[in-house]
Design a protein around this nucleic acid. Structure first.
Lengths: 198, 198
DNA sequence: GTTCCCGTCGAACGATCCTTCGATATTGTG
DNA sequence: CACAATATCGAAGGATCGTTCGACGGGAAC
């Protein structure tokens, strides 16, 4: 993508903002009004320039932001960095973290309390990202609301005939046992990711 | 937001998909064509219904998706769950993880190799999310490209007068030392988050 | 100093858009 | 059974949209 002029950058930013806020492409006249341009022809030329430089794609009468300029496409995961190249060069990109995929439609997160899972590298304050589900396989990492308080707990799930066991990953803690129908155990779902922010 | 009919749900999904893909709201005729509807009037009625139920907002002649249905608004972080309430009830929401904020404009991620940071709960395969910067404070968690290979490394940064030390969090490893001008040490940036996917 | 790119204007045209109106069929609720 | 909500059609009118054309000025490059 060739470099944009200051004006083009401004206009591109305005377009991206409008899409983020309102979920639609601004009309030429809207763009014009925002920058004090009275003629749609002026805007038209800017959009053509943006398309020529690869910042926008054109399909019929419609423009859409090129992938490279979108802000919601997740962040790149860099692999080995080619010698001498700038770190963020495109050839180093392994994949992209798709935030939207990570936390699907109904996902939510809970904050981890205590350190019963430290041996698996899950620490107090971490966020467990949970995909709600009613059934999980043995050995899976899950979140459940347990006890009178219905406090959120991250554990490994193990079920035998009539006992459900929630196992910690810390020798100092003991597994929690529940009968399969115990109302004090409410399964929230499967942990699909752990996030720790600094 | 009142419950949507199956048809309304389908149409809303199509709208959200179009916005995600092309960054613009689909026209009535596009929506119609996608579902085999020949009259824009039909689509108009559906959109009105969606707006009446709060799934879309209307501003003049334009619609935009309500916050509640947007897929890019981050996922909720649940705190203590009020007794007897459904787990995902709104009153339990502590905050929201704003993916877009988490990985700012120029952020990227690198995969963690080896287990030199296990004592801080950072394990092989985790993704370190990096905010590029040229200067960091002592003690901060950073990512640097080191050695001939320029391999990405996560460590704690400590700088004295003329030595930069990258400290692991694992007794089995030793700190790496560099002179302040060593070209074999290239600082990538500060670690703002750790992400582990399952 | 001429040439080129960038940014701008205004007017007019045709394409596309959303809305409105009247009409029909199905489904579920009271 | 009657009534409301849902789901659809087709036609027509008026609003809005993007496009095109011709023109102007400033700055940078040659």
């Amino acid at each position: 993508m060739r470099t944009l002029t200051k004006r083009q950058r401004e206009i591109l930013d305005f377009i991206l903002e409008t899409i983020e806020k309102y979920g639609r492409f601004p009309s030429y006249r809207e763009i014009g009004a925002h920058f004090g341009l009275t003629s749609p022809a002026t805007v038209s030329q800017h959009l053509e320039a943006l398309a020529a430089k690869g910042a926008l794609h054109r399909r019929g009468r419609h423009y859409s932001p090129a992938e490279a300029v979108r802000r919601d496409q997740g962040i790149p995961v860099l692999g080995r960095v080619a010698a001498g190249s700038p770190i963020t060069a495109v050839e180093n990109i392994e994949e992209r973290i798709q935030w939207n995929r990570l936390g699907g439609e109904h996902c939510f997160a809970v904050r981890v309390l205590g350190n019963s899972m430290v041996d698996e590298g899950i620490r107090e304050g971490d966020l467990a990202i949970v995909e709600p589900c009613d059934e999980v396989r043995n050995g899976e990492l899950i979140v459940a609301y347990v006890g009178e308080d219905q406090e959120a707990t991250v554990k490994r799930y193990h079920r035998s005939r009539d006992v459900i066991e929630l196992r910690p990953a810390n020798r100092a803690y003991r597994p929690m046992r529940f009968s399969t129908a115990d109302p004090h155990l409410r399964l929230a779902g499967r942990v699909v990711a752990i996030l720790r922010r600094f």
